[in-house]
Computed example of a mutant assay.
Amino acid sequence: MTPLAKLTPLAKRTTALLAGVLLALLAGCSSPPDRTEALATKAAAPPAKPRYGQHSWLRGMPPVLDPHDVYAADRPGRLSPAVKGFPSRVYVPNTNSNTVSVIDPTTYKVIQTIPVGVQPQHVVPSWDLKTLWVNNNRGHTLTPINPATGAAGKPVDVHDPYNLYFTPDGKYAIVMASLDRELVFRDAHTMKRIKSTPVSCYGVNHADFSADGRYFIVSCEFSGELLKVDTEGMNVLGRQKLPFNGAMPQDVKISPDGKTFYIADMMAHGVWVLDGEKFTTPELLPTGKGCHGLYVSRDSREMYISNRGEGSVSVFDFAQNRLTKKWTLPDGGSPDMGGVSADGKVLWLSGRYDSEVYAIDTTTGKQLARIKVGSGPHGLAVYPQPGRYSLGHTGIFR
């Protein structure tokens, strides 16, 4: 007879219960925790970030529609419901006249002149597409314009706003404080200062974001440098001097596939081609004298490059990875900053030194109109444009 058989019925039940508890404890070493533990573990773990290709994208950022084309939302006529009813206009900041000229693109006529602050540099669509912000650089203000009515609102005090961008998640505006040598992160709606990031380079002015929104590349005009900045951390990840004596980098634009950044350089007379992830030394693609602005076509196939110093526009083919055309303005000119019409048929550029604006056919390169405006026209905005949200400048849409 076994020892267990000698036990009383009560003892047997007690022994069996203890054995069951022991087995459960042993099983617990390899089986999932109970519901309470699982909930506690789930609550403690940070939520996983969504993925873009091989990288996680910025938390809260509306992902790009096509992982192979960051401009997929910018197709002809693909206007957001947020801009429904907005009249099609071209807004031209006249730096020396302290005004914004408003052009009707159907008639090529100036239909309104809006007084703003001192030295307006760029007209910038807000992240939510509802407001146009005029950057009054030396007036140290931003003037809001209602694109539905064309009415200017009360200026907001913002120091040294040379240019303005928005983080892809819509949280912050980023003021390019060129002379203050700062990137100033502000609330995207109230413009309340959140954080100022000092930079050692001089003349921060233009930028564009990686496809996943994790970082952005900034050009430093007066010191000939580039910065790589962490979007969420609001801190500089890298800095490099461009390999050209006297370099003056200007506009920045990412390729449709998100792999390459292009940086216009008005003194190197070409575009720097940069691997944003590696942030290694870029290579120069010569385009023309005074290379300045960069604009992607509505089908994402080409990029229009304004050469301010020679009155021309170079056309770069992304698939062929080369320049394919050059359009020269009749009677010269100084094509600077601008944008592409909503239907993709017209490229609009300011004539910085000639108090005029150019309308150029994107199929033929023919000049459609040359319109007189105020003195020193600079970062004009064509509005509205297709896209779900704005990353700033004269219109970078995703």
Rank of each mutant, 00 (worst) to 15 (best):
R78L: 11
V92N: 00
R75T: 15
N94S: 13
P87Y: 12
K84P: 00
D74R: 04
V118Y: 10
Q112H: 08
V100C: 07
V102M: 09
F86W: 06
P93G: 04
D66V: 13
I103H: 01
P81N: 02
T95P: 00
V70R: 07
V118C: 00
F86E: 04
N96R: 10
T106S: 07
T107C: 00
P81T: 07
R75P: 03
N94Y: 12
I114G: 02
T107A: 03
A82G: 00
I111M: 02
Y71S: 02
R89G: 01
S88G: 03
I114N: 02
V100I: 15
G77V: 14
I111W: 04
G77F: 15
V116R: 03
R75W: 11
I111V: 15
Y108K: 07
V102E: 09
N94E: 14
V116S: 01
V70Q: 02
Y108L: 01
K109Q: 15
G117W: 12
Q112D: 13
S88F: 12
P87G: 05
D104A: 13
V90Q: 02
F86Y: 13
S101W: 08
A73D: 14
A72T: 00
V118K: 08
H68A: 13
R89I: 08
T95R: 05
T95A: 06
S97Y: 13
D74L: 02
L79T: 09
Y108E: 03
S88D: 14
K84T: 14
S97W: 14
I103T: 00
V90E: 01
A73L: 03
H68S: 10
G85N: 07
L79H: 09
T107Y: 02
A72M: 00
T113C: 06
Y91A: 04
F86P: 00
Q112K: 14
D66H: 11
V90I: 15
P81H: 04
V116A: 02
S80D: 14
V92R: 01
N96W: 11
I114W: 10
V83L: 05
T99C: 06
G85Y: 07
P105I: 10
S97H: 11
T106H: 12
R78S: 11
S97A: 15
S88Q: 14
Y71L: 05
K109N: 09
I114D: 03
V100W: 06
P81L: 04
N98K: 07
V100T: 09
R89M: 09
K109T: 15
D104R: 05
T99K: 02
D104I: 12
P67T: 07
A72S: 01
T113R: 14
I103N: 00
G117N: 09
G77L: 14
V70M: 12
T113L: 07
K109W: 12
T106E: 08
P67N: 04
T113V: 15
V92T: 05
P67V: 10
A82Q: 10
N94G: 09
R78A: 15
I103D: 00
L79P: 04
V110G: 07
N96C: 02
P105A: 06
P76L: 06
F86A: 12
G77I: 14
R89D: 01
S101D: 13
N98P: 01
V70G: 01
L79R: 09
P87L: 10
V70S: 00
P76F: 08
V100H: 03
S80G: 12
H68L: 13
G117S: 11
A73I: 07
R78Q: 13
P81S: 05
